[in-house]
């Protein structure tokens, strides 16, 4: 069980949250025409063994989107902030 430190609500169990995927993916410019870049953006994700920056949605709490550091190897949870705030 992860314990996630929501910046609004305080520390809560993972069961209140929903995983939202890799938070480091950046959308290509809208006029980008190279298919490979769009393919990478939509489908291709790294599967790192170690630190990972990811989105979590506090769906049963304050309903805010969070960006959180998590170590995929140890499940250690690091820095967590609101996704609408700049990093």
């Amino acid at each position: 069980m992860l314990r996630i430190n929501c910046p609004v609500c305080g520390t809560r169990d993972e069961t209140e949250f929903t995983y939202g995927g890799d938070a480091t993916v950046v959308r290509p410019a809208m006029d980008e025409t190279r298919a490979q870049l769009w393919l990478d953006y939509v489908f291709n994700r790294d599967n790192p063994r170690g630190p990972h920056t990811e989105y979590w949605h506090h769906v049963q709490g304050c309903r805010q989107w969070l960006v959180m550091e998590r170590n995929t190897l140890t499940h250690e949870v690091g820095e967590c902030h609101l996704a609408k705030e700049a990093c």
């Binding site: 609500c9 305080g10 520390t11 809560r12 169990d13 069961t15 209140e16 049963q60 709490g61 304050c62």
Partner: peptide, 24 residues
């Protein structure tokens, strides 16, 4: 609930939006 409802953390005039077992 996963929220902290101890006397130090949860007092009169406070609200916790959370889940109780399987329900929001």
């Amino acid at each position: 609930t996963p929220a902290n409802v101890s006397e130090d953390a949860f007092k009169p005039g406070q609200v916790r939006r959370t889940r109780l077992a399987q329900a929001a």
